[in-house]
């Protein structure tokens, strides 16, 4: 109460995450299904300031905090289809994404090699469920198709995709090995995946 602001009063004006969980879950579903920018803007408007408050405490630095907010919300936008309302609330899901990104950012800042990454520890953003170790026949066919389509990719994109998805290397490791910036690895990965996706849709 150093600045004389009555804490209870300021709190009472604030919507707690659980009060609007259903609303936010509906917006996430709209993002996943139709890429609704309006819905994403609602999710962003609600969570970005809250993430910033978390990020400032964790990173202690404005620039890093904003990077953490941006990376977290980018994942929410791109991977909204992974949110499962039956497994938890939007705020829990978004917190765990931020926690993962924070972990990887801090490891990187300490110049730690990526011997462990957050996906290993907390599979928040993995497509596979922990039990889905058996590859179904459908998936095998799809992987085979992807294998054929691989050859069509430009050499530089294929090298990055193979290193990451077949050898299981991290993006940072690939950047180090190929002596290219991490951003380039990320953009090549994104372009290649987009291209594979387009080709798979044509294939169907």
């Amino acid at each position: 109460m150093l600045v004389g602001i009555p804490l209870e009063e300021s709190r009472s004006n604030v919507t707690k995450p659980k009060d609007c969980a259903d609303e936010m879950a509906a917006h996430l579903a709209a993002v996943a299904e139709s890429r609704s920018k309006t819905s994403f803007a609602k999710v962003f408007g609600y969570f970005a300031p809250r993430l910033r408050s978390y990020a400032l405490k964790q990173m202690g630095n404005e620039a890093l905090a904003m990077e953490l907010v941006q990376d977290t919300m980018s994942n929410v936008w791109q991977k909204a289809h992974l949110f499962n309302a039956e497994k938890g609330s939007p705020s829990t899901w978004i917190f765990t994404i931020a926690r993962n990104i924070r972990f990887d950012m801090l490891r990187k800042l300490q110049n730690r090699k990526e011997d462990v990454c957050s996906d290993d520890l907390w599979p928040v953003l993995c497509e596979q469920t922990p039990d889905a170790n058996e590859v179904s026949l459908d998936e095998q066919i799809t992987l085979e198709q992807v294998g054929q389509l691989f050859d069509v990719l430009p050499d530089k994109q294929r090298a990055v995709i193979e290193a990451i998805y077949i050898d299981g290397k991290s993006q940072q490791e690939v950047a180090d090995e190929l002596c290219i910036p991490l951003g380039t690895v990320k953009s090549r990965t994104r372009l290649a995946l987009q291209r594979l996706k387009d080709m798979l849709q044509d294939y169907d």
Partner: peptide, 13 residues
């Protein structure tokens, strides 16, 4: 952020 594409294909490692 909203100019980023969705990432639907995540080929499992």
């Amino acid at each position: 952020i909203t100019s980023l594409p969705a990432s639907h294909i995540d080929v499992p490692a």
